[in-house]
Design a protein around this nucleic acid. Structure first.
Lengths: 352, 352
DNA sequence: TTGAAAGCGCTAACAA
DNA sequence: TTGTTAGCGCTTTCAA
């Protein structure tokens, strides 16, 4: 520090640009450009595509950005470029929801690539889904992630008309709106049925929450067990309540109305946990007298006593693949596989 | 249907506006206005502030909107009005997270009022938090919700400079950046200590995940028990892993290193569940020999066996109040109470 | 109640 | 490599 050629500490800036009646008064790209002595577009390039700009300009702009504390306005950028760098995700529910793992990895992957995520929740209501979609489209996101398959035709039409890339997920269909990353609920029902039958179980029950995909798993389960020569499946619908308590009540009903039941397929791990809890209360030996299978593989069920057998879906992978597909589309690249089946696995633990 | 004066089915529209090299080619307000034979600004008013417009114009615009399938571009609207109608929320984690209840009610309340929510996740990383905040500010949201208190001074400075309204939450401090909806972790530690001491427990342990707020609860718990004449608290830090398994392992360590322990305060319900699970495995009578208290009141812990005693935070209320405060600010209304303490409650169930 | 003009802050397109 | 111009689609401002 013996040379005085080093510039003194960066002085605080007080640019005096006459501000018009509009705007927020925040530092804009123009201010930065002016400070660096270049045109706004050059400043823009220095920030967004630095290799299109001389090293000298880059330096001066970096300095100006630092001194002014400039933060780009992506709303303006989005409007000018027709690319919002925003994505949207639609989920039925968030609290204790099996979908959050997907949303987390979706969000992570998008964030790494410089994008943001808007989150909307439908609470399993079609009406709400429509409102949400309208609100989402009005933000012109670069892509939309939908948990499940879009139900209402009017929503489908709106999305189609908007031209925004879409990934549907957590399901399989031959005619997605656009792209799809999911798995077959029918196949799950079938495989679970076979799984139980192979274990010499004879009398089945299903405990399902009131949602369409769970119903499809249950139906396929019923059909397959019937095909395999078993007696009719006793079904308990717990309605919208997905709680552990519902699982406990469901087992009480099963014990009362179908006491011979020796295997239960639940539509979620939480319901299965409820069944296990009630079984313990009633001193029913698991899995000797009752075999219980969940759905979702919530992180903690493997460490409970007894450890819960369940259907595992690779939710993170769904999120990651969906993000990559959506990003590809947003950046005008080809998506090799518009429909991806990530499959599932029956994880056998102590409860079966 | 005997009169033919009824107009035929709305015909599909094919407006032929010469499109410039830019833009997406989507229907714009101009198209709608042209179709209705008014100026764009009139169309805007018919849609956004209908009572500033004649009934006739309103009708014609509504019709034009329907026929064209027009969806407003809120990116453009946001740029013009400096109001994005977007809010942002920052959470440490989403999967199985106690914060999601807050986010859900925040999102609900915002959505009802016509706003959207962007969600960002920090994974408890300060560096990530800074990046996230920069990304958020660049979107010019009308408000930002932060789970916890903003740690880094550089982040605080950035937010302050942006002038965007902020709610910090899930904590209490005398100098929030802007607004605050939370509760005192120190008080929780103190009350839990008193609670145990009143129940004649003598030898304490805490099981905490590696986060700052949990640490503060634990510290306050330790200090209070010491004040009350108890012996030193045995502390287990489970690190970043917030799993049920960590809880089980923690109890194993406690049993080994502090076998006289008769009460454990856990930093989350999941950890407490792990402790209970391991206790069952080891045939330790709950609550006779060991009293266990969780934190969070996750929906299902009340229906487990034994039902878990825990500290309940009204997460939904935090979300709702935060949304209302943020909306008030966005709409230039006064916020009566910039700092709100929503308190907490110790819920006693079977595990204590 | 309606409209013309001007701009929000940025970037695409073209030109030098 | 840098700059000029003209928007992106909407709303504010001001005027009628």
């Amino acid at each position: 520090m013996f040379k005085m050629t080093k510039p003194p500490t960066i002085p605080p800036i007080a640019i005096s640009i006459k501000r018009s009646r509009r705007g927020t008064g925040a530092i804009t790209l123009r201010d930065v450009a002016k400070l660096a002595g270049v045109a706004p577009i050059t400043a823009s390039r220095a920030i967004n595509t630095p290799n299109q700009v001389s090293a000298d300009v880059k330096l001066r702009i970096d300095d100006a950005v630092k001194r002014t504390g400039y933060v780009p306005n992506r709303i303006a950028g989005g409007l000018a470029s027709s690319r919002s760098r925003l994505f949207a995700a639609v989920v039925p529910s968030t609290v204790m929801s099996v979908f959050m793992e997907t949303i987390e990895s979706l969000n992570d992957t998008l964030f790494e690539a410089g994008y943001q995520l808007m989150l909307g929740q439908t609470d399993y209501s079609t009406k709400r889904e429509e409102q949400l979609l309208e609100a989402i489209i009005s933000r012109r996101p670069d892509g939309i992630f939908i948990t499940g398959i879009l139900q209402s035709t009017s929503s489908r039409a709106k999305i189609l008309a908007s031209g925004i890339p879409v990934v549907e997920s957590w399901d399989l269909t031959t005619n997605p709106i656009d792209m799809l990353v999911g798995f077959s609920h029918i196949e799950i029902g079938r495989e679970v049925a076979k799984f139980f039958v192979n274990k010499h179980r004879k009398h089945f029950a299903v405990v399902s929450a009131d949602d369409e995909r769970a119903k499809r798993r249950a139906d396929s389960f019923k059909a397959t067990t019937l095909d395999l020569g078993c007696s009719a499946v006793y079904a308990v619908n717990v309605g919208a309540s997905r709680s552990l308590k519902s699982g406990r009540e469901a087992l009480q009903r099963i014990l009362r109305d179908a006491p011979k039941t020796d295997a239960i397929f639940c539509s979620s791990d939480l319901l299965a946990l409820g069944v296990l809890t009630e079984a313990r209360q009633q001193n029913i030996a698991i899995p000797k007298h009752l075999s219980v299978l969940g759905f979702g593989n919530v992180p903690f069920v493997q460490d409970m006593i007894p450890a819960l057998s369940t259907v595992r879906i690779n939710g993170s992978e769904i999120g990651r693949l969906s993000a990559l597909a959506l990003i590809s589309r947003a950046e005008n690249r080809e998506v090799a596989e518009p429909i991806v089946d990530v499959g599932f696995a029956i994880i056998e633990r102590e409860s079966t």
